[in-house]
Design a protein around this nucleic acid. Structure first.
Lengths: 470, 343
RNA sequence: GCCCGGAUAGCUCAGUCGGUAGAGCAUCAAACUUAGAGCAUCAAAAUCUGAGGGUCCAGGGUUCGAGUCCCUGCUCGGGCG
C-alpha cells in the first residue's frame, strides 16, 4: 500500500522547519528564502514527501540541502551527564551568565560549526546552566534548538497545513479564518463528495474553495464567485490538484458575469414560458441596467459597484415582484457576449482560433446550467464585502432543506444578515450565529497546562436552512 | 437512503427531521404503521406540541415543505449529520458538531479514505465521517458493547450508509482492530476510556504511508498518557486542544433613553402625576436596537482533542524534530508561529 | 387506551423570531394626591415608583465523560383514537 510519491519540478511543497511552514512552488531555479536564510532546494527533486534534509551552510546565510538519515535531538545530545540544580535561589538575571560575546558566537556560526557544538559551547561558557533545574535546562535547550535548528522536512500540502500556515503567518490574510471555523463551515454546509456548492469568497486566498474542492470527487463542483477576474487562488493552486479536477470541479466565475448570465437566462425562460426548476423570485433590473464592460479589466473594476448596485435594489424593498429585464439591455448584453467570444482567451492564450470558448465562459455556462437545472446544494459566503444582497439573490437557487453558511470575521454583519433574513424571508429557518472558543494545551509530564497564548477570535458563522415557503 | 444528496422527496422508510422550532426538532422514520405494546399494527401518528401528524401523509412530500398538523405546522427536513447529532437517541454521551468538525478536518479525510473509529457510541461522529469519505470510502467502527453496536448497525442501514460504515463489536483495547483492518487506515479516531492502550494497535492499522490520528478524552490525565504513548510510537505534530462553540443570540430591543430635559424645557405639565411618568412612557425618547448576547449557560467543557501525524514507515525512525512532536512547547508568545491551533 | 409537552420565588404564569435569571399577583418601602383625626404627629384610599424573594417536582438508571441522555412516580396541560 505504500506509495512513495516523489517531488517534481512544478509541484507545490510545504517546507517545514519545526513550527515554521512555507508553501513553495518548485521551479528549475529553486532557491527559497526561509526566514533570513537562502536555501537551495535542488536536492529535494526526486525525493519522496516527508524526507528530512539537513541544511548545509555554503556561505553566510546560504544553504544547500542534504538528505538526513537521522536527526540528533539537541536536548538529548547535550544533556548527557549534565547536572541540574533543584531551584533557582542562586540564579540572578544580571545578563552576565554567558561568558561568550556576541561576536564570538556569530563567529562560530560563520565558521560552519554544527548546532550541537555551538550549543555545547554556550553551555560550557554559561555560569548558570548547571544550577538550572532540569525543566529549566530543557526549556533553555528548546530555545537554542529553535535558533540553531538545521533540519527541514518537505511535506505534501494539505488543507490543514495550508490553513495553519496562512493563519499563523497573518490571520488577516485569510479573513481570520481559523481551522476550527473552516471545519465548521464544511460541516454546516453539508459538503459531500458530490453536488454543486456555491461559494462567494474574497480575502481568503481561496482557502475555503480549496477545502471544499478537497472534499469533492468528480461528481462534485464548486462555483466560486469572485469579485475580480484574477482573484488570489493560492490555496487552490497550492494543493497540487490534478488539472482535470480543477477544470471540472472548480468553476471560477466573476460576480458580474454570473449574475448577468443568470438574469438573462431567467428572463429568457420566463418570456418563453418555460417552467424553471428553481424559481427566481426577486428580479432586480439594477443589475442589467449596469453597463456591461467589454474587457476583463473593465469588468474587474466594476465588480464592487455591482454589489452596491444590488444592495440598493434589494435592501429597501425585496418583496417587489420580478420584472423581466428590459429587452434592449438584454440584447446589448447578448451582443456583448458575442463580442467576447471573439476575443482571444486571456487565460489559455496560445493562439488558438477564436472558435474555442475561453475557460471563463465555459465555466459560466456550466455553472449557470447546474444552478438552473438542479439548484445549489449549499451556499457559502466568506468575503471582505458585505454579502447580504448576493445572499438574498442566491437563496432563490438553493435547494429546499439545504444550508446557507455565512462566515464573517466580525459579528455585526452577521447580525444584520440574521435580522434581514428573519424579517424578509419566510423561506429560511434555523438561523444561528456561532463563534468558537479554541484553546490549545501543553502536555508535558508534570507541566501540563493551557498554552499561554491563545487565538482570541476565529471569526463568526451564520447558518440557516432553506425551506419551501408556500 | 435518507441522507443521500440526490433525494428530494420523502419515501417510506426514510428518516426525516420534523422541525417545530430551532429548539424543538424530532427525528423519526416514515412508516405508515407501527406496532403497539401488544404487537398489533396500528396507524403511525406522531404527536408533538403542535398536535398530531399522520406519518403516512409525508410520503411523496418534498424535503423542506411545511406540513400541517392538528394544532399547528412544522417543516419536514432531510436529515444531515448536524441535524442527526441534535436529534439522535442517546445511548451514550455524544460528540457535538463543534468537536466533530474539528475532528473530521484534522483527520484530513478525503473521498475514498479508510477511517477507523472506536468506540461507536451513539454514532454521532460516525455520520460525519461517512459523509466525508463518501460512497467509495470506508468507515470501520468498533464498540465493545454488543447492543450499542447492534443499534448503530441498524441506524446506518436505515440511513443508507451500510456500504460505507461497517460496525463490529470488539474491545480494541485488548484485541486491536483486527487483521482485516491492518495496514489499511488513512485515519484513526479514538473515543475510549483508555486510549493510550490502543495507540500501538492504531499504528498497526495505519497504511505504511501513515496518516492522521485523533483522540477525544474528557480528562487531562487520559490526555497525558495518550500523548506519551503517541510520542513513544513515533507520532509527530502531537497537539491537544479544546473547542467550545458559543451561540450569539440576536434580539431586537427598544430601550428608553434617559431624558436630560428640565422642567422648564418641558411642555407645561397639567398635573403633578404626569411629571412622575418615566422616560419609558415618553414615546419620543425610545431607541430601537439590535442587541446581541450569549446564552445564559453553555457547556464549559466537552473533552480534549489530541491530534497527531504518523509519518510514512520509512520516515518514522528519523526522529524528526523538524516536524515537532511536542505540543506547542511553551509560551506561544515568543514562538514564531503558534503552531497548534492557536491557529 | 396510546402519544406529546410542562413542573424553580409565598401563589400564578411565560409566546413555533432558538423570549424560562423574565414577569404578574401578593408583601414591604418611598413619593405625590385626596379626605379625616390630632397638634409638629397618627392614619385611610387612589395613583405612581422602587425593593426584597430564584439554583430548577420526587426517585432511580445509563454514559470513561451529562448545564443538549433515559426510565418510573406525582401533578398539570395538549393531541390522536
Amino acid at each position: 500500500m505504500e506509495i512513495r510519491e516523489s517531488i517534481k519540478i512544478g509541484d507545490y511543497v510545504v517546507i517545514q522547519k519545526q513550527k515554521y511552514l512555507k508553501l513553495h512552488q518548485l521551479k528549475a531555479r529553486c532557491d527559497v528564502m526561509l526566514g533570513k536564510d537562502l536555501v537551495n532546494l535542488k536536492a529535494i527533486v526526486g525525493q519522496p514527501f516527508w524526507t528530512t534534509f539537513k541544511m548545509i551552510q555554503k556561505k553566510k546565510k546560504e544553504f544547500d540541502l542534504e538528505v538526513a538519515s537521522e536527526i540528533e535531538s539537541l536536548p538529548e545530545a547535550v544533556m548527557k551527564d549534565v547536572q541540574s540544580g533543584s531551584d533557582n535561589r542562586n540564579i540572578t538575571d544580571d545578563g552576565k551568565s554567558q561568558l561568550l560575546s556576541t561576536e564570538e558566537i556569530e563567529g562560530f556560526k560563520e565558521s560552519g560549526l554544527s548546532a550541537q557544538s555551538i550549543v555545547g559551547k554556550l553551555i560550557e561558557s554559561s555560569t548558570t546552566f548547571h544550577n538550572k533545574t532540569e525543566y529549566s535546562q530543557e526549556k533553555y535547550l528548546k530555545k537554542k534548538e529553535k535558533k540553531y535548528f538545521e533540519y527541514i522536512v518537505i511535506r505534501k500540502p494539505t488543507v490543514r497545513l495550508l490553513a495553519e500556515m496562512f493563519y499563523s503567518k497573518d490571520p488577516h490574510s485569510v479573513l481570520g479564518l481559523r481551522h476550527d471555523s473552516i471545519a465548521q463551515i464544511l460541516s454546516y454546509a453539508n459538503v459531500q463528495n458530490s453536488g454543486t456548492y456555491v461559494l462567494f469568497e474574497s480575502g481568503t486566498q481561496a482557502l475555503l474553495g480549496s477545502a471544499i474542492l478537497d472534499c469533492l470527487d468528480d461528481q462534485g463542483r464548486v462555483i466560486s464567485i469572485t469579485t475580480g477576474r484574477y482573484p488570489p487562488k493560492q490555496a487552490v493552486v497550492g494543493m497540487n490538484f490534478p488539472e482535470e479536477k480543477r477544470a471540472k470541479s472548480f468553476l471560477s466565475v466573476t460576480l458580474t458575469d454570473f449574475l448577468t448570465s443568470l438574469e438573462k437566462r431567467v428572463s429568457e425562460e420566463s418570456t418563453n414560458g418555460v417552467e424553471e426548476a428553481v424559481k427566481l423570485s426577486n428580479g432586480e433590473d439594477g443589475l442589467v441596467t449596469q453597463a456591461v464592460p467589454s474587457t476583463a479589466a473593465e469588468r474587474t473594476g466594476n465588480e464592487k459597484a455591482t454589489l452596491n448596485g444590488i444592495a440598493q435594489n434589494v435592501l429597501p424593498a425585496s418583496t417587489e415582484d420580478s420584472k423581466a429585464a428590459d429587452n434592449g439591455l438584454i440584447q446589448e448584453e447578448t451582443s456583448n457576449s458575442k463580442k467576447r467570444k471573439q476575443e482571444p482567451d486571456t487565460i489559455n492564450d496560445c493562439g488558438t482560433p477564436a472558435l474555442k470558448k475561453p475557460r471563463w465562459q465555459e465555466n459560466l455556462e456550466i455553472a449557470k446550467d447546474a444552478l438552473l437545472k438542479d439548484g445549489a446544494d449549499s451556499l457559502i459566503f466568506a468575503s471582505k464585502e458585505f454579502p447580504l444582497p448576493l445572499i438574498l439573490k442566491m437563496l432563490d437557487y438553493l435547494k429546499p432543506s439545504h444550508s446557507l453558511v455565512v462566515y464573517s470575521v466580525y459579528r455585526e454583519p452577521l447580525v444584520l444578515i440574521y435580522n434581514e433574513l428573519k424579517k424578509k424571508r419566510k423561506d429560511v429557518i434555523g438561523l444561528h450565529i456561532f463563534e468558537n472558543f479554541l484553546r490549545t494545551h501543553q502536555i508535558l509530564s508534570d507541566r501540563t497546562r493551557p498554552d499561554v497564548m491563545m487565538s482570541a477570535s476565529g471569526g463568526h458563522i451564520l447558518v440557516g436552512t432553506k425551506v419551501l415557503s408556500s | 437512503m435518507s441522507f443521500s444528496r440526490d433525494k428530494t422527496e420523502i419515501d417510506e422508510g426514510d428518516t426525516v427531521i420534523l422541525y417545530l422550532s430551532a429548539s424543538n426538532m424530532h427525528a423519526f422514520r416514515v412508516q405508515p404503521t407501527i406496532k403497539n405494546k401488544h404487537g398489533e399494527l396500528v396507524e403511525n401518528v406522531f404527536q408533538t406540541t403542535y398536535g398530531a401528524l399522520k406519518v403516512a401523509s409525508l410520503v411523496g412530500v418534498k424535503f423542506g415543505s411545511k406540513v400541517q398538523m392538528s394544532r399547528g405546522w412544522a417543516f419536514v427536513l432531510q436529515p444531515n449529520p448536524e441535524l442527526w447529532t441534535l436529534t439522535l437517541p442517546h445511548r451514550t454521551q455524544i460528540i457535538y458538531t463543534a468537536d466533530i468538525s474539528l475532528i473530521v478536518f484534522h483527520l484530513e479525510l478525503r473521498p475514498g479514505s479508510f477511517v477507523v473509529e472506536s468506540g461507536t457510541g451513539s454514532g454521532s461522529l460516525t455520520h460525519a465521517l461517512a459523509r466525508r469519505v463518501g460512497a467509495h470510502g470506508t468507515v470501520r467502527t468498533f464498540d465493545f458493547h454488543d447492543q450499542r453496536a447492534q443499534i448503530a448497525t441498524e441506524e446506518f442501514a436505515q440511513h443508507g450508509l451500510s456500504n460505507v460504515v461497517q460496525v463490529a463489536c470488539r474491545d480494541v483495547s485488548c484485541d486491536g482492530f483486527g487483521e482485516d483492518v491492518q495496514g489499511r487506515a488513512d485515519a484513526v479516531f479514538l473515543d475510549l476510556p483508555h486510549p493510550w492502550l490502543v495507540v500501538h494497535h492504531a499504528v498497526a492499522a495505519f497504511k505504511l504511508d501513515g496518516g492522521r490520528f485523533a483522540s477525544f478524552s474528557p480528562c487531562i490525565e487520559q490526555v497525558q498518557k495518550t500523548v506519551a504513548a503517541l510520542r513513544e510510537n513515533g507520532f509527530l505534530e502531537v497537539t491537544t486542544m479544546e473547542c467550545l462553540q458559543r451561540e450569539i443570540l440576536v434580539n431586537n430591543r427598544t430601550l428608553a433613553v434617559a431624558s436630560v430635559e428640565t422642567s422648564d424645557s418641558k411642555e407645561p405639565a397639567g398635573r403633578l402625576d404626569e411629571r412622575s411618568q418615566t422616560v419609558a412612557s415618553d414615546s419620543s425618547d425610545k431607541l430601537e436596537l439590535v442587541c446581541t448576547n450569549y446564552q445564559n449557560t453553555m457547556p464549559g467543557h466537552t473533552g480534549y482533542l489530541t491530534f497527531a501525524t504518523l509519518p510514512p514507515v520509512w520516515a518514522r525512525n528519523i526522529s524528526s524534530s523538524a516536524c515537532p512532536s511536542d505540543p506547542d512547547g511553551d509560551d506561544g508568545g515568543s514562538a514564531p508561529v503558534i503552531e497548534t491551533a492557536g491557529l
